[in-house]
Nucleic acid binder design. Sequence first.
DNA 1: ATATGTGCAAATCCTTTGCACGTGC
DNA 2: GCACGTGCAAAGGATTTGCACATAT
Lengths: 153, 153
Amino acid sequence: MSVDAAREKFQAYLGTKGLRVTSQRLAIFDAAFAQTEHFTAEQLLDHARAIDDSVSRATVYRTLPIMTESALLREVDIGRGEKFYLPATNNTQVAQVVCVDCDRIFEISAPFMEWYGSTVSSKLGLKPVSQRLQVSAQCIAFHERRRCPNRTK
Amino acid sequence: MSVDAAREKFQAYLGTKGLRVTSQRLAIFDAAFAQTEHFTAEQLLDHARAIDDSVSRATVYRTLPIMTESALLREVDIGRGEKFYLPATNNTQVAQVVCVDCDRIFEISAPFMEWYGSTVSSKLGLKPVSQRLQVSAQCIAFHERRRCPNRTK
DNA sequence: ATATGTGCAAATCCTTTGCACGTGC
DNA sequence: GCACGTGCAAAGGATTTGCACATAT
C-alpha cells in the first residue's frame, strides 16, 4: 500500500469514527510513514514536530491507538518498557527476533503462529484473538568483541 | 522438586554468590512457593508480609531477580505493565494463553518453540537466547454474557 | 454552534535507587 | 568488623489524564 493510499485510509477511518482530520494527526501520520525501522512514541514525536512543531507528546500518544486500531500501524511490545511501532503490512503473522547486542528488531514471517493459536486456544475453550512470538538472540561472530555487526549507532 | 529441595537450592545459590541468607529472603521464598497461580510483585509482598511483616517492597523487588536468575522462579511478561511470576518447572518450553475476559494466564507446553528460535536466529547469524510465545484469547460460550467461566473473582 | 481536539503540566503505575541504619558471616 | 542487606521515601521512565483554550465540521 502506497503512502498516499494509506493516508486516504487514515482520513476515511477518522471520518467513519466521527473523528476529525487535524494538522497534527496528519503530521503524525506522515512522520510515521516516513520511517523505515521500528520507532518509539518519543521518536515519532520528534519526527512529527519536524513537520509541524505544534505537535505535542499527548497528541502523539492519543493518535497512536487510532492508527493501530485502523491497522495502519502495528504495535510491537518486546517487554522493554517502551513500545515500538511499524507501518503495517497485510501480513500479521510475524514474529520478532531481537538482538540482545544491538537491540535491533527483525521481523520474520511466522505463518504457523495463527494455527498454533487456534489449536491451543480451542483446547481451553477459548477463541484466539492474537498471538505473538519473540526470540531473543545474540550475535555469534562478534559477541566476544562486544560489538554487534548490526549495530548502527 | 519439593519446596524443601527448592529452599535448599535457594540457600545454596545465595552461598555461591556471596549473598546472605536473611529472614526476609526466606519469607519471600516461602511466600512465592506457597502460590499455585501466577503472582505479581505486589501480591508476593502481601504474602511475604504475612510470614514476616518486616519485609519491604524494595526487598521483594531486589529478591525477585535473584530467584529468577537461580531458575527458581520464571518471569512472565504479558505486556500488562506488571510482571507475573511462577515457581519454575524444568520445562522452559512453555507458551501462555491469556484470556482477555478474565485475565487468567494458562501455561501450555510448546516443545517446538526452541526449534523455531534456533531456525530463525541462525538464518540471521544470531544465537537464540530465549523465546516467548503468547496467545490472547476470549471465552466463546460466555462472551455474550460478559462473564468468563474461568473468572474467580 | 458545538462536539472534538489540543497543549500543558500534573498524575499514574510499576519499578529502581540513595541513604543511613541493621545484621549475617 | 565489615561487607552485604534492609526499609523508607524519593526518583525514574513511559504513558495517561484534567483542564481551559482552539478548531474542524
